[in-house]
Design a protein around this nucleic acid. Structure first.
Lengths: 229, 229
DNA sequence: TGATATTTCAAACGAACGTTTGAATCATAC
DNA sequence: GTATGATTCAAACGTTCGTTTGAAATATCA
C-alpha cells in the first residue's frame, strides 16, 4: 500500500470550491445546480451540505478563499510602496498598479483556477442578490478605504466627491474587463492572440485608467487635476 | 357601463414587460420566477406563455422593446452630427456623447421604467448565459460597427487594435455605471443627492471617457494620441 | 485490533420551477 | 342575439431544485 495515492485532508472541499468557481462563472449562482456542481467535482451530492452547510455558505467560501488573500496582497503592496516613499505621496499610477496588478495577473493563471475566479468576481460586482452584494462589499470595505486615502494623498486638488466617482469608474472598467474578456463580444476587432496576453492588457488598462483619473474637472479649464508633474 | 375603464389592446403584454424588466434587474433571469413575475404584473400565471410563448422569449422581448429604439436613437444622433459636420471628422467627445447620452438620460426616467431597463442592461453585459449574450451581441452589432468607424475617423493616428480596447474599456465603464449605481457600494463617500442627478453624472463620465480614449499609447511618449487640438 | 470520529453514499424529502390544459370569460362582428 | 375568435383563469403536469437522512465506508488513535 505504499504506492497508494494520498488523499489530502480537505481534498473534497478543494474540489468543490474549484468546480463551484468555474460553474458559478459559467452559469451564475442560481444556474449552477448542486447536482451539476458535485458531478463536476467528482463528489457526492450531499458533500456540499456536509462540508459547507448550504449552497449560500459555499458561495461565501468561494469568495473567502480568493478575495481575502487578494485584498491582503493589494494592501501589502500599498504598504510596501508607502514605506518606500518615506512619507511622500505615491504617484497615481503606482496606486492603480497596486490595485489592479494582482487581479490582472490572475487572468493568466488558468491552472490554479485564478482565471475563473477573477471572471466570476467581475460578474459579481453587478450581481443583484442583496446577500451577495453585502458579502462582497464587506470583504472590500477596508481595502477601498485605504486606497481611497492613498489616492486622496496623491491628488490633493481633487475634491473627495470627484475622487469617489473616478474610483467608481476605474473599478467599473476593471470589473468589466475581468468579466467580459472572451465572453461578450460587442465590438468587432478582437485579436485572438491578445486573449492571454495579460501584460499588454494590463498596460492598456493602466494607461486608460490613469488618463481617466487625471481627467480635467467637468467645469474646469483644460488642465488636468494634477497641477504639476 | 359608460364609465368603465378602457383596456388597451395589449395592456397585459405591457404589464408583463414592465414587471419583467424590474424583476430581472432585481433578481436576475433565473431568480425571477414566473409566479413572482405574473403576480407583480397582476396577470394570470399562464399569460406569459400565452403572449410570449416561453420565459426565454419574454427575456428577448424585454430587450427588443427598449434596445432597438435605443440603438436607433444613437445611430440617428450620429447621423445628425455627421451631416452637420459635412464630411469633417467628428470630435471624440461628440461621438461619446452620442453613444452614452441616450442610456444615461434613461436613468432619470423612473416613471416609464427606463431606469430599470438601463440597470438591467448594464448587468446583462456580463451575463454568462450564452443565448442571452448572443441575443444582446446581435442587437448591438450594427451600432458598434458604425461607432467604431466614427471613432476611427476622429482618431486616425490610433491603431485599430488600440481603438478596440479603448472602446471596450469605455463600454465597460458605462456598463458598470448603469448597473451598479445605487446597488453595489464598494467605495464609501457616495452622496445621496447625486443619485438622481444624471446630468452631473453624465459630465463626470464624459470627462473620464474622453481622457481614457485619448490616453497616450502604452509605449509612447507622454503625448496623447491626438496630435493637435 | 478494537473503539471512535469523520467522511461518503444512495435514496428520498417537500418545495418551487416552467409549462400545458381545457373550460370560462370577454370582445367583436354579423 | 348569436356565433366566432381572443384572452383569462384555476388546476395540474412532469421536472428539477436544495436539503436531509441513516446506513456504509473510511480514517484516527488507544
Amino acid at each position: 500500500m505504499t504506492l497508494r495515492a494520498v488523499k489530502p485532508q480537505h481534498e473534497t472541499r478543494r474540489r468543490i470550491l474549484d468546480a463551484a468557481e468555474e460553474l458559478f462563472m459559467q452559469h451564475g449562482f442560481e444556474g449552477a445546480s448542486m447536482r451539476l456542481l458535485t458531478t463536476k467535482a467528482g463528489v457526492n451530492l450531499a458533500a456540499v451540505n456536509y462540508h459547507f452547510g448550504s449552497k449560500d455558505a459555499l458561495i461565501e467560501a468561494v469568495f473567502q478563499r480568493r478575495l481575502d488573500p487578494m485584498n491582503a496582497a493589494r494592501l501589502a503592496e500599498l504598504d510596501r510602496l508607502e514605506k518606500e516613499a518615506r512619507g511622500k505621496p505615491l504617484s497615481p499610477e503606482a496606486i492603480i498598479r497596486a490595485f489592479i496588478g494582482e487581479s490582472l495577473s490572475m487572468i493568466e493563471d488558468s491552472r490554479n483556477g485564478g482565471r475563473n475566479f477573477v471572471r466570476l468576481l467581475g460578474r459579481t460586482y453587478t450581481e443583484p442578490s442583496k446577500p451577495i452584494r453585502t458579502l462582497i462589499g464587506g470583504m472590500y470595505a477596508g481595502t477601498m478605504e485605504r486606497f481611497k486615502a492613498a489616492f486622496a494623498r496623491a491628488l490633493p486638488e481633487l475634491p473627495s466627491g470627484e475622487l469617489f466617482w473616478r474610483m467608481h469608474f476605474m473599478f467599473g472598467t476593471l470589473s468589466y474587463t475581468l468579466a467580459a474578456t472572451d465572453t461578450v463580444q460587442l465590438i468587432a476587432g478582437f485579436k485572438p492572440e491578445d486573449r492571454h496576453d495579460s501584460r499588454a492588457l494590463q498596460e492598456r488598462l493602466v494607461q486608460f485608467l490613469i488618463a481617466g483619473l487625471l481627467a480635467p474637472m467637468p467645469g474646469s479649464s483644460s488642465n488636468t487635476v494634477r497641477k504639476a508633474a
